[in-house]
Amino acid sequence: MAMTIDKKLGADFGNMKGDDMSNRRQGLAGVGLHGRTIATLLDVLESSQTTLPQIEDLSEILGVSAQDLRKIFPDEHSVLVAAAEQALVRLMDACVKAVVKVDPQDSVAQFLALGEAYIEWADMHRAQFRLLSDDRMLNLLNVPSLRRYATSLDELMGRMLERARDAGHLAEDENIRLMVLSSRSFAYGLARMVVDQRMSEWYPDTPQVEAAKIALHDFVRRIARGSTRKPN
């Protein structure tokens, strides 16, 4: 049975608030049902946090029949996968654009650019970040079409660190795989603090994203300094 929107989701989705929601709605002019469904799903998740809407709920909000919506999305899971893939495509695009602007010979600067792009993406796409972070909703590692994006980012980080090692910025015996995990975990934590508005606890007079970048640069400098190859 479909949820009754007013009672179960506890919000009037015709009057949802928030920068993410407003930005998504402003960009929906001329967008087809596929894109509007993804945007509506993100709005619902942002408002309800943990309540997954059914196809019937989404169709009611969109003003279309559930039958027509199921022609595009057979079930709720398929909408989640589509929303996650859209978010990951945008993340990859942002990361690639940031990295190619940096001197390819400067692997440390590229690594920083990658981290900054991730934090900026999380700040601009908070609902998507939360969706990808909540495996109760969707475990992207269990969806091959989504897992490849996460794998690609890990591989990109690994190649950058290998180049940094080869350039003498890291020790020859550095555990690159473990360093990827440490760096990814740290960047995720910073992004989470930005999304949850927690950076102000540490830098009350600095914008959230800028504060996160300060911490990111400090982290990378410490890694590079602590792992620098010792002279013979």
Rank of each mutant, 00 (worst) to 15 (best):
A187L: 09
H217R: 15
S185W: 10
N232F: 03
W202S: 14
V194L: 07
F111S: 15
C95G: 04
R177K: 13
H34T: 06
K7Y: 03
A83G: 07
Q67H: 15
N175S: 01
A98R: 00
R147A: 02
K97R: 11
K230Q: 13
I214Q: 09
R184Q: 05
D68I: 14
S107P: 15
V31C: 06
N232G: 10
R222D: 05
R229S: 02
A109F: 14
S65I: 14
P104H: 14
S227R: 06
S78G: 04
G35M: 04
G168S: 08
P144T: 13
L80K: 09
L52P: 08
S107N: 14
K7P: 00
V100R: 07
D19I: 15
I61T: 02
V100H: 06
V143I: 12
S145T: 12
M199R: 08
D68A: 14
V180I: 10
E60V: 11
D103Q: 05
Q110C: 15
G115R: 05
M179C: 05
S200R: 07
S185G: 08
S200A: 12
K230G: 14
E60F: 04
I55K: 03
L190E: 09
L112Y: 01
R221E: 12
F219M: 04
P144C: 09
L170Q: 02
I55C: 07
K7I: 03
L28V: 04
M92P: 01
R177T: 09
S133F: 13
V31K: 14
D20A: 02
Y118E: 06
A82K: 03
L132V: 12
L41I: 14
P104V: 08
D68V: 15
D196E: 14
Q54V: 00
G168I: 14
V220W: 00
Q110G: 15
L140Q: 02
L170P: 03
L140T: 04
R130A: 15
A82G: 05
A164G: 10
V64N: 06
A224N: 12
E155K: 01
M1P: 03
A83E: 04
D123T: 06
E201F: 06
